[in-house]
């Protein structure tokens, strides 16, 4: 359709054409299929937009009300699962950290005087993501790929998962770790930056992994700066301090 046609559509819908123009327009509607189809779509889009904006505040009110009622309805159950999940996952990380600390103590003896490198730190504990009885095939694939250090596929699967579960910080974290392993530093650092801003249980774990990314990039200043952010109460604090000492 030409620009002129769209201007005509609008004028027709608002009854701004003269009688003669209207007759000609309606005749063309009857005889010109392409013209008629375009007009129909134009009309559909107009009413879509009208509805979108006209009901915008009603829709927002409805969503808000729905959210409240829904939370009341699911309330207890939702909190239960949340707490449960948190506790379980937290524990997994604690084990991970405990194991890493043990490993560090062992390794430190050998590496006390050597320059630290990313390779000293990229042993990951077995990931277990299907804690909630998720049967999601994609989650299982991601988990397996990560655990066998197939980071190329792990990156793909976690990338998909972060699309599907955009709120899940754990998946984003594993996605970023996979990116670091593949040397996609810019992308990884962007993810780290984003998720360390969110106030989640993975916050300092994220900062730690971000620091390791810098280490792999041999950006000692960047790495140190990140390690210094990690506060004493964080589980990764000791690791961070040790690495910091080695770097200086």
């Amino acid at each position: 359709m030409e620009e002129q046609n769209y201007i005509q559509f609008e004028a027709y819908l608002f009854e701004e054409l003269t009688q003669e123009e209207t007759n000609a327009f309606e005749l063309q509607l009857q005889n010109d299929k392409e013209f008629q189809e375009s007009f129909e779509t134009y009309k559909e889009f107009s009413s879509f937009l009208e509805n979108k904006y006209k009901n915008e505040s009603a829709r927002n009110d409805f969503k808000e009300n729905l959210k409240n009622i829904s939370e009341k309805h699911f309330g207890t159950r939702k909190t239960e699962t949340k707490i449960e999940t948190k506790v379980v996952r937290f524990k997994a990380w604690q084990y991970a950290i405990a194991a890493s600390v043990l490993l560090l103590i062992g390794v430190t003896i050998f590496q006390q005087f050597s320059t630290p490198s990313f390779g000293d730190y990229n042993q990951y504990d077995t990931v277990s993501l299907t804690l909630r009885g998720d049967q999601d095939e994609l989650i299982q694939k991601a988990e397996t790929a990560f655990n066998v250090r197939d980071f190329k596929n792990a990156e793909l699967y976690f990338d998909n998962l972060t699309d599907v579960y955009s709120e899940n910080i754990e998946y984003q974290l594993y996605h970023a770790i996979s990116l670091v392993e593949l040397d996609f530093f810019d992308e990884a650092d962007a993810v780290f930056g984003r998720i360390s801003e969110a106030n989640s249980v993975y916050r300092y774990e994220t900062v730690w992994r971000h620091a390791l990314s810098k280490l792999k990039q041999e950006d000692v200043a960047g790495c140190s700066a990140l390690l210094e952010i990690i506060p004493q109460e964080a589980e990764v604090y000791k690791k961070a301090q040790k690495l910091l000492k080695k770097l200086n």
Binding site: M1, E3, N5, Y6, I7, F9, E10, A11, E37, S38, T41, Y42, E44, F45, S46, L49
Partner: peptide, 14 residues
């Protein structure tokens, strides 16, 4: 402009 913008949407949809 309004007609042309909805026109663009029409075209994209089609």
């Amino acid at each position: 402009k309004k007609s042309l913008c909805i026109g663009q949407l029409t075209k994209m949809a089609q």
